[in-house]
Design a binder for these strands. Structure first.
Lengths: 325, 325
DNA sequence: GTGAAAGCGCTAACAC
DNA sequence: GTGTTAGCGCTTTCAC
């Protein structure tokens, strides 16, 4: 492997272009208010390219007082692959604004978020899930300029998913609904948010609250839940997400029940394998990339002082109907 | 939100502890060769804690010439959630060595890896998939000290998975095997590696090479592949991974065939929903966290000059048998 | 319009 | 053992 060749510095560029470092800095940063002659500008740009110059991030942020690093904190959740679309999109959108996003997956063994934040010198920390107040404080002390409170995967933001699931079932004649809650504790708050939407839809339709039962991704466990629902004459269940829905389907199979006749099931997130179940899983999907774009806008808004005006919402939320009835 | 409070600097700690910045630096970095009196040491540590002092990463790496950031580059693959276990574990293992790992997901819209590397001032870049030579060069120019060539998800490293799949099927009497290849082009090289293992096992057992057929995660597409295998009297198929295996199962269902009687299927990776199919999917699993730990050791080895001695291997590779026969 | 000079916070020789 | 002193590479105020 090639050892690192000597890296060009701002001074090298200045020399090569026959100007001072100041000028280089101005040109490369498009410093407003300093109209630099096209001629000089070109020379600098040229030299920079020729020398493959890249400002050293540490020097830059040390001098400027802030970096252009955005740290995305992903909590320790069994999240599906869909999330990666979101991550990529968010990174892309931020990149267009000159920000670099990197991700940190929380894990039992890993460092605490504030430590990571400090280590990478992030000036923005974006959370997926809600940060508790202590964490927020710690992040600010760790050097973050802005910490984005939960929006995407939290609180009211997720309710529309549950509401849409329930409305779909209600619209197809179901009067007693169930809700399949994941057992995994880290998924709890997200699930409760989605559940709130289901509850809201039920109440609005004059129905009882849904029968909430937990399940893991074990057939036996799911079968128990299914038994619970059928006992209470539930005819349709909204599952927290597609994986949970697949577990419910498996639980039904264990009882010799078939969807949607014996019990209708609707998932959420539209994971790739949702279409491979028997019967294919009806689910709710939304435009994650679009959510990411909105999110990026929020970040830019906060960064540039304007208060986060637009609150992001789930874009293109809709039911993907796969099995009849 | 609380605006960033003034952050304590090394000088503040020095004042509070009544020593000089040098001493602070030595104490905090456990500089070897400078036995500092326990007394002084304590004072410094105390002051640091009291002031919630954290060295500013940019200043530190600017002065030291290198950061302690490790950038993990994840290629644009539809990777499952299992990967997150690996990522967390790797981050954890590196953290124990004082390194901070962050992740970058390659994406069409995102920045190029070398740009990200430069932006976060990473001194180590770890790849998942193979980096081509140009990228490696670019990474070095972007400031990386070490770029770790592929090991985990590439080349011979993955063959044992395919071999184990095939051996399992062969051991149960199957004489004509099939291989379910994913259509997704980014998965190609990984799949070919696993396939090599299957081919090897077949040849070693004196069997013909497996019938390789591609499929997507669409039932119709999978059904085609299934037809192809049955036509050629294949009785057992090794799938690239569990998702592909699930697709094969769905394709079989479309033909009214049942596993494992009509066609035995074995997946790989042991994703959570593997146990929820009908019948439950037999698959191959391995200890990803352990692989991550080995990987971390390699990184540390390279960083400390010793040449990467141990080549990581798949740990605890084994078949998880779920359906009979 | 461009350059000189003063730091940003930290590390690491080098003296004391 | 501990403090003094240079920088690391860049931004940015302030003269020219």
């Amino acid at each position: 492997m090639t050892p690192a060749a000597k890296r060009a510095t701002s001074a090298d560029v200045a020399n090569a272009a026959g100007v001072s470092r100041t000028t280089v800095s101005f040109v490369l940063n498009d410093k407003p208010g300093y109209s630099i002659p096209e001629e000089t500008r070109r020379r600098v740009l040229d030299a920079a390219v020729r020398l493959d110059y890249r400002p050293r991030a540490s020097a830059r942020s040390l001098a400027a007082g802030r970096s252009d690093i955005v740290l995305l904190a992903i909590p320790d959740l069994p999240i599906g692959a869909g999330i990666s679309r979101f991550v990529e999109e968010l990174a892309g959108a931020l990149a267009e604004h000159g920000l670099t996003m990197v991700t940190h997956l929380a894990g039992a063994r890993g460092q605490l978020l504030p430590d990571v934040c400090a280590a990478v010198d992030a000036s923005v920390v974006v959370g997926f899930d809600a940060f508790d107040e202590d964490t927020v404080q710690a992040l600010y002390r760790a050097g973050a300029d802005v910490v984005l409170p939960p929006r995407v995967a939290s609180s009211p933001a997720l309710q529309p998913i549950g509401r849409l699931q329930a409305d779909h079932l209600i619209g197809r004649g179901h009067r007693r609904l169930g809700y399949a809650m994941p057992e995994h504790s880290n998924l709890r708050s997200m699930a409760e948010d989605r559940l709130d939407g289901v509850v809201g839809a039920c109440l609005d339709a004059g129905l009882e609250r849904p029968t909430v039962l937990s399940t893991s991704l074990e057939i036996a466990r799911a079968a128990q839940a299914v038994a619970g629902w059928t006992e209470r004459s539930v005819t349709g269940v909204c599952a927290f997400n597609d994986e949970t829905a697949i577990a419910v389907l498996a639980g039904m199979r264990a009882h010799g029940l078939a969807a949607p006749g014996d019990l209708a099931v609707i998932g959420a997130d539209d994971i790739p394998t949702a279409r491979l179940t028997a019967p294919p899983l009806t689910t709710v999907c939304f435009d994650l990339p679009e959510v990411a774009r909105q999110r990026a806008e929020e970040i830019m808004a906060v960064l540039s002082g304007r208060e986060s005006s637009a609150v992001s919402t789930l874009a293109d939320l809709q039911v993907v109907q796969r099995s009849s009835t």
